[in-house]
Design a protein around this nucleic acid. Structure first.
Lengths: 92, 92
DNA sequence: GCGTGATATCGTTAATCGACGATAGACGAT
DNA sequence: ATCGTCTATCGTCGATTAACGATATCACGC
């Protein structure tokens, strides 16, 4: 589970989560199976494009994925990635 | 343990750890009670000032502290902070 | 006091980040 | 086919970060 890329992976996860808006988004996603981007936008005092960018960062980190179902994208957590993040951190 | 500042705190911890050099430093500190800054410098391909800056970031995040013992500063992990980081993350 | 070794801080530079508005693309409904 | 809705991407701007060398500071031994 933790190979030579443990430092790089842990840092990448942490960097992705290292912004209050993204921790909040993560929590929102963790409490439901899926969220539409617009739902998240509604709950945050940010422009839609900004939220989309934060979601892209979380997606690039592998922590979140989108069910590619047309314009109404359902976002959800990738449990295995979140788990690996926790394992890596707990291993420090 | 997780109040209204949970998002901010988690994000701050994650941001501090969100750099491969700092995860590596954290691991080094986790394996010993204390390290001198110069020891860390020796093991990293970075200038002393750069390492000092990374240590400052970890210190500001509360994850690391320095035993103020003159110029030979011994750095060590703050277990309670690291624990809180883990708890916050595991709570997501 | 004077030097020496160990850290910290300063000043600079290039790179990255965070936010926004504007725009483009994709789908469902009319 | 066109419209309206939802999301992604682009371009920009100011702020922050990462890295370095140079310089200051501090504590100890001489």
């Amino acid at each position: 589970m933790d190979g030579p890329r443990a430092d790089a992976d842990l840092a990448a996860f942490a960097k992705a989560v290292g912004h209050p808006v993204r921790t909040r988004i993560l929590r929102m996603l963790a409490r439901k199976d899926a969220h539409m981007c617009s739902h998240i936008v509604d709950e945050l005092p940010l422009a839609q494009s900004t939220v989309s960018e934060h979601l892209r960062i979380l997606r690039n980190a592998g922590l979140v994925k989108a069910n590619e179902k047309g314009p109404r994208v359902g976002y959800c957590i990738v449990p295995s990635a979140l788990k690996r993040f926790k394992v890596l951190l707990n291993g420090v």
